[in-house]
Amino acid sequence: MWTHILTVGLLFSVFLMAASKRLGALIRAFRFQSLMLALLTASFARHSDDLELWVITVMILFIKVWLIPRHLEKITAEMSSGENMGLVLNPPMSVIIVTVFGWLIYSFSDSVIGGMSGDARLNFSISFLTIFTGFFLMVFRLKALAQIIGLLVMENGVFMLASSISDGMPFIVEIAVFFDLFVLVVVAGIFVYRIKGLFTHIDVSRLTRLKG
């Protein structure tokens, strides 16, 4: 039962992200999502009594719930470019699109991987929806930070996919992916600073000097 609640919580976080107008809200939604993910992993760890899964739960809590959002909030504050993310599609429209896509993913998930149990199919669909939402954020939000968060959301979705269909990946791979994610955020963060310094804005849709 708890897993169901947590899964619904994840789904809710996805809609929260689609509906967010400001970076602060987005980061908070990301925190919430990562928390749901950590709790889900914890419940898997309890069922299978696997030490590695506990380690991963702790890592999610540390890196995705605390470290990365804090880093992002720090950057957002220093950017002082207005909290607005720059929306190409307004929040209601975004939510509608995410909903429609969620429904599409659910209906086609059977043809993609046949014979999944109801639970598994739900988890599978939600993880793909999370991936899609991350992608959506990257394409339809104009600020650089939103693109970073979009990437992180995609990675969350991938993690969820791994845990739902194959009980996660080999431990060493999970650790390496975490580490990699962290470096990515640091690197991308440095670049956001540089963009702000050179362009005095972080609206990536205006970065169009290189064309053709």
Binding site: V88, F140, L142, V204, S205, T208, R209, K211
Partner: peptide
């Protein structure tokens, strides 16, 4: 097809 918009490029992949 290469006008400089990163959003467009991402949508190609999608």
């Amino acid at each position: 097809m290469q006008p400089g918009s990163i959003h467009l490029y991402l949508s190609y992949i999608f």
